[in-house]
Amino acid sequence: MESTPAPGENIAVLRKARGLGQAKLARLAGLSLSYLSKIEVGTRPVTPPVVAAVAKAMRVPTARIYGQPFLGVTEQAELLDDLRDSVRRYTLPREDVPPPALLAAAVDRAMRLRAETRYLELLAMLPKLLGQVTATALSSPGEAGAWAHVVDVYGCAYAAAHRMAQPDLADMIVSRQAWAAQQTWNPEAEVATAWNEAGTYQSAGQYADGISIVERAISKYENVARGNSPAKAMSLGSLHLRGVVLASRHKDKEAAADHLRKAHEYAELVQSDLLWHNLTFGPENTALYELAAHIELGKPDKAVEMGTVLVAAPPRTLTPNRLGRMYIDIARARLDTRDYSGAEEALDKAFAVSPQMTEVHPMAREVIRVLFVLHQRTRPALMTMAKRTGLSN
Rank of each mutant, 00 (worst) to 15 (best):
T4W: 01
G8V: 04
N10L: 00
I11A: 00
I11D: 02
I11E: 01
A17G: 15
G21R: 15
A26P: 10
R27T: 13
A29H: 04
A29W: 02
L31M: 13
S32L: 05
S34D: 15
Y35M: 05
G42Y: 03
T43F: 10
T47E: 15
T47V: 11
P48Y: 09
V54M: 02
T62P: 02
T62N: 01
A63T: 00
R64A: 14
I65C: 01
V73I: 12
E78F: 04
D81A: 10
R88N: 08
R89L: 13
Y90L: 13
Y90S: 15
P98A: 08
P99R: 13
A105P: 07
V107W: 09
D108L: 11
L113E: 03
R114D: 12
T117N: 04
L123R: 07
M125R: 02
P127I: 06
L129W: 09
T134C: 11
T134I: 09
A135G: 11
S140T: 15
E143Q: 12
G145L: 02
A146N: 01
A148F: 05
H149V: 02
V153D: 07
V153W: 04
G155P: 12
C156S: 15
A160G: 12
A161F: 03
A165Q: 03
M172K: 14
I173F: 00
S175V: 11
A178R: 08
A180Q: 10
A180L: 09
A180F: 13
N186R: 05
A189L: 03
A189F: 07
E190A: 06
E190L: 13
T193A: 14
T193D: 06
A198T: 06
G199M: 08
Y201Q: 03
A204Y: 01
A204V: 00
Q206L: 09
Y207R: 04
I211K: 04
R216E: 12
A217G: 07
I218W: 05
I218V: 13
V224Q: 14
A225L: 05
R226N: 08
G227Q: 08
A231Q: 10
A231C: 07
A233M: 09
M234K: 07
S235H: 12
L236C: 14
G243M: 05
G243E: 08
A255W: 04
A256F: 05
R261M: 11
K262W: 06
K262S: 06
H264K: 14
E265D: 14
Y266I: 04
A267P: 07
D273A: 13
H277K: 14
H277V: 11
T280Q: 09
Y289V: 03
A292H: 04
A293L: 01
H294N: 13
I295W: 01
E296H: 14
G298R: 10
G298T: 08
P300Q: 07
K302N: 07
P314R: 11
R316D: 14
L318S: 14
P320F: 04
N321M: 12
L323P: 04
I328T: 09
R338L: 13
D339E: 13
Y340H: 10
Y340L: 14
E345M: 06
K349D: 02
V353S: 00
V353T: 04
P355H: 03
R365A: 00
R369T: 01
R369G: 03
L371G: 02
F372G: 01
V373F: 00
T378S: 15
P380T: 08
L382F: 10
M383Q: 10
M385I: 02
M385H: 14
S392F: 04
N393I: 05
N393C: 00
N393E: 15
